[in-house]
């Protein structure tokens, strides 16, 4: 059964219809790509899945639950994590602390216990510490744990952002242009990373990407958006030869 289902979702900003009547199903073990020319509404789709915007009409159903009216942090708690097109790391936190923040929902204590520090707090903090070390180790970030996240090389920053999203234990991971600005070596590393993520975390991955090598290389299915309308969906080979897609990217034949 599908883990995320977009049912006739539309979103309007004033007179502009950014996304129109979008239907999309994502299975629990899917690796779905979303492509389309600039301004097609791809990031907007991510924004209404994660609660940054509310769709003007239509329903977003995650794991059998309607997401209407939920705030981004509530949607994160349900198991949807995301990265951002232009990396959004916390400038004053280290790599370790960045992952620690993402583990906020693992702790069962609140303000008062944080202040008076009962013994149970240390138990929980120890578990958090172990989890952070484990995650950082798995993704090869342990050497950077004390570095400020924003001071790292670009490719590593992308990695930290993906790891931060994964620390929330998502069942669906949304990646917004993960390969943007990467060199070929970094892109290959990224493709390996995404494979690793699916194997280890068993979550569905839904990614927006412009780099066709990456999209065609790893996605099992691809949906194409143009002017807010889904014009095609299918396996990479079908999409490559779909006349509508070619037209959206290259324009009509003269």
């Amino acid at each position: 059964m599908s883990i995320l289902s977009l049912q006739n979702c539309s979103i309007k900003f004033g007179g502009l219809v950014a996304v129109s009547d979008l239907c999309l199903e994502i299975e629990a073990d899917d690796l779905l790509g979303l492509i389309g020319p600039n301004g097609a509404g791809k990031t907007t789709v991510f924004n209404f899945i994660t609660g940054v915007y509310q769709p003007t009409s239509g329903r977003v159903v995650f794991n059998g639950k309607d997401l209407a009216g939920l705030k981004p942090h509530q949607i994160s708690a349900l198991g949807i994590a995301r990265t951002f097109q232009n990396i959004r790391l916390f400038p004053s936190l280290t790599v370790y602390e960045t992952v620690q923040v993402a583990l906020r929902k693992n702790i069962r204590y609140g303000f008062m216990q944080a202040v008076v520090r009962p013994n149970s707090l240390f138990q929980q903090e120890r578990e958090i510490n172990e989890t952070i070390k484990e995650i950082l180790n798995f993704f090869g970030l342990l050497p950077y744990q004390r570095e400020m996240a924003t001071a790292l090389p670009y490719g590593i920053q992308r990695r930290v952002e993906i790891v931060r999203a994964l620390a929330t234990k998502p069942r669906l991971l949304l990646l917004d242009e993960p390969a943007a600005g990467m060199n070929p070596a970094e892109k290959n590393e990224l493709m390996g990373l995404i494979g690793q993520v699916r194997e280890h975390y068993r979550c569905a991955v839904f990614l927006i990407e412009h780099d066709m090598k990456v999209v065609m290389g790893i996605c099992e299915r691809i949906a194409v958006l143009d002017y807010g309308i889904k014009i095609a969906e299918g396996i990479p080979r079908e999409i490559q030869n779909n006349p509508k897609v070619v037209e959206a990217y290259l324009g009509e034949k003269a």
């Binding site: 994660t50 609660g51 940054v52 705030k71 981004p72 942090h73 994160s76 708690a77 994590a81 995301r82 951002f84 959004r88 790391l89 916390f90 400038p91 004053s92 936190l93 923040v101 993402a102 906020r104 929902k105 931060r164 999203a165 620390a167 929330t168």
Partner: peptide
């Protein structure tokens, strides 16, 4: 303090 949108996205209220 650093980034409200990113905080919300990782489950911070």
């Amino acid at each position: 303090r650093d980034d409200e949108i990113a905080s919300e996205a990782v489950g911070i209220n």
